[in-house]
Design a protein around this nucleic acid. Structure first.
Lengths: 120, 120
DNA sequence: CCGTTCTAGATGTAGGGTGCACCTAGGCGG
DNA sequence: CCGCCTAGGTGCACCCTACATCTAGAACGG
């Protein structure tokens, strides 16, 4: 999706990027470049590559993931990331947050529909 | 709700504040202090007063709302805000954004449930 | 051999939004 | 006079993000 012209056109939750990465890493270890493609299929169509790498480094620093270098047969070496127990717990928290957020968005939308008389 | 300890514990969409204020103003003109109370009932439990006033001023600057001073019988003068046509259109956009966001959050949660085998 | 493209990772910088602390000021009750 | 409620506001630091730019290995074509 397009970058925000006004701030109301694009508003995923803060650190949604981290939540997505943790979820993808729950499905198995991976590296930044691959996660970038996957994250783009997970709603963040135009996710920033720099942001992915930065998030991964930050999460490694917070010990939500561990990382090591792995050579690749078809390109430069990769930095492979693996979810830690702390990361797994952080993901649980993040998913609960996401659920709460989704419910509040639904409430807001319902209220809008009530005011405008628009049925869902 | 508590302030964020780690960034994954509290993640409403960017500019959710603006969306809430526009919705509340759709229900009728109001002023900052009152909007602050209402916004706190609309999910943003611990909304920051400064943030409310700042958002309102910013939206007035963007001509999404118009504002004028009105004396109050029981306290200092109030700055009353009214939604403009542009503001109404911005709200439509914001609500569509909220719907898209909610759907993506649901997708993420579903995926998490799939991976963990947890039923909804 | 050189240029291009794909893979892979990373930094620099600016800007918006938020959280927290703090400030001004009117009006009212004790 | 003091404290509290109403009402509006500023300053500052931090976080996250968007965008541009950079390095570098490997493969493929000319």
């Amino acid at each position: 999706m397009r970058p925000p012209a006004t701030s109301l056109e694009w508003g995923m939750p803060r650190s949604y990027m981290r939540t997505c990465l943790l979820l993808l890493l729950l499905e198995g270890p991976s590296h930044g470049y691959e996660l970038l493609q996957e994250v783009r299929l997970l709603g963040l169509d135009s996710a920033d590559a720099g942001g992915v790498y930065r998030s991964l480094r930050a999460m490694a620093h917070d010990e939500l993931v561990t990382a090591w270098w792995e050579p690749s047969e078809l390109g430069p070496a990769r930095r492979t990331y693996l979810l830690t127990d702390a990361g797994r717990e952080a993901l649980d928290v993040a998913v609960e947050t996401a659920q709460r957020t989704a419910r509040q968005l639904d409430a807001l939308i319902d209220r809008f529909d009530d005011v405008t008389g628009r049925p869902t």
